[in-house]
């Protein structure tokens, strides 16, 4: 029954892959779960289900999702212009995309905070025009009071707010989308587009019906990677978020806080929840991709 592949070395490479994967990924994960096992079920629920932790899930998942979404749109545009057009400085832009990968996250966090704090370049503009906007709105009887971190005195507060968390997560996620989309866009056959146009499709129809479906799996992969990366981010966010309980505390900060109290089991319990959630998400996205491919 055993079929031999034309390529030699299957047994060897599979053995190496499995061993490597076990050492690098599976064993640490097993230890994580093992460490959580020391908790009783009630303690586990208490550790992962307290109001404060739930508030942090909402912020972390919400900001990570929005950031990945924004990156999917703008990452697509960036990848498209890098692949399709030849312009002066293209290689520089292409190299710049990788900066968030290469920079230590604390450095990105400090840089973004310097930029977005109320005395920074961007932050001061947000403060000035934010407060003008609120005053304008109040004069016209509109109620802006419900938007957090926006008021007439401080304007729009970018750093030390939920916006800050979103900004940091957007920054670190961009390369994932661009780098997964680039090869897909390069493989795209221009003749197919030309065919679509010659058959009378509008530009939008070509994009919607021809281009998007063929790069969609890569776009989803990029989105998922950016999302998953953002869920676990710590270094850059703690500088810009302000870390106020229930407002701007991300889940990884709570994990670190638990470690500081020598509560290893509690810390790993929250990690297990995060891990399960991201794994479930990856699974769902891969599964939808599989379904989409089968339908074709």
């Amino acid at each position: 029954m055993k079929k031999h592949s034309v390529l030699p070395g299957f047994g060897l490479t599979l053995g190496v892959s499995v061993t490597y994967l076990s050492i690098v990924v599976l064993i640490p994960l097993a230890l994580l779960v093992w460490s959580t096992m020391s908790l009783s079920f009630a303690d586990f629920v208490k550790a992962v289900g307290s109001k404060q932790v739930i508030a942090s899930y909402k912020l972390t998942f919400g900001a990570a999702f929005l950031a990945a979404l924004v990156n999917a749109v703008f990452g697509f545009i960036a990848a498209w212009s890098l692949v399709r057009y030849r312009f002066f400085g293209r290689r520089v832009v292409d190299a710049l995309i990788d900066m968030p990968f290469a920079m230590p996250t604390a450095v990105s966090g400090i840089a973004l905070t310097a930029l977005c704090a109320s005395n920074g370049w961007v932050g001061s503009l947000a403060a000035k025009y934010g407060s003008k906007l609120v005053i304008f709105a109040e004069e016209h009887g509109l109620d802006f009071m419900n938007i957090p971190y926006l008021n007439r005195y401080d304007g729009l507060q970018l750093a030390y707010s939920q916006f800050g968390v979103f900004i940091a997560l957007t920054f670190i996620g961009l390369p994932f989308v661009v780098r997964t989309l680039q090869p897909a866009l390069e493989d795209l056959d221009r003749e197919v587009e030309e065919a679509a146009e010659s058959l009378g499709a509008t530009k939008f129809q070509t994009f919607r019906r021809v281009i998007l479906p063929s790069v969609f799996p890569s776009l989803m992969t990029g989105f998922t990677l950016a999302f998953a990366r953002a869920l676990g981010e710590y270094g850059s966010v703690v500088f810009i978020s302000g870390n106020l309980p229930y407002e701007t505390e991300i889940t990884s900060l709570l994990i670190v806080a638990k470690l500081q109290q020598y509560d290893y089991a509690g810390a790993t319990a929250i990690s297990v929840v995060m891990l399960t959630a991201s794994f479930a998400l990856m699974f769902v996205i891969n599964f939808t991709q599989y379904l989409a491919r089968r339908r074709k």
Binding site: Y160, V238, F239, G242, N243, L244, P245, L253, V256
Partner: peptide, 10 residues
């Protein structure tokens, strides 16, 4: 408190 940094230097 407006900002709770993770450490003294921060």
């Amino acid at each position: 408190v407006k900002v709770l940094d993770s450490g003294a230097r921060g």
